[in-house]
Amino acid sequence: MLRDCKCSVSEETVERYCLGRLESEELERFEEHLLVCPGCQDRVAASDEYIAAMKLALRDIRARQAKPAGPRWNPLRWTPLLAAGVAAAALAVFVHFRSPAGDPAPHMVSLRAIRGFEDPAAAAPAGALLVLKADLSELPEMPSYRIAIADQGGAILWQASGTPEQGQLTVTLPRKLAPGRYWVRLLGGGNLLREFGLKVE
């Protein structure tokens, strides 16, 4: 239950703060206020939860809609998605993806980071070719990143470099993974930036 907040900070300000979009002076004022206002602390916590749920849900929906649209698809309207699709296809060529005749369509796996907690393991079906989409939010911007797949024991099975697109890094695994638990490591500048769990079942 949110505490009754007697101040007049708008919902807009709270949301912009949670999204990291307050300008420096406004940020300074709001954070000073936040130190001493339990009501606004509750509002920020609630807004954080809402935004996290929104992002997760939108990613899920996007991942499910990742297949190319039919005849009614308007390329002008969907230009950003078209560009992302072309980039993903180019990346697949870059990592020498080969799909033997008769394979099922690749399975999209979204790898996300959730504020405050370890990224929950993403699930993927065994026997499918996997397209991994790693979330780069809140990471330092780099021209390219490296993705490495390690088995449960930590041995590296495969790795490749890729360029980010709209806050995500998309790579296609050139081979199928057997059932089990894997670690997907995101590296940049030689440093481990983020690690995601991946369950293949």
Partner: peptide, 9 residues
Amino acid sequence: GAHVPDRRE
């Protein structure tokens, strides 16, 4: 292969 989690589970 040392496991370095991002955050605690």
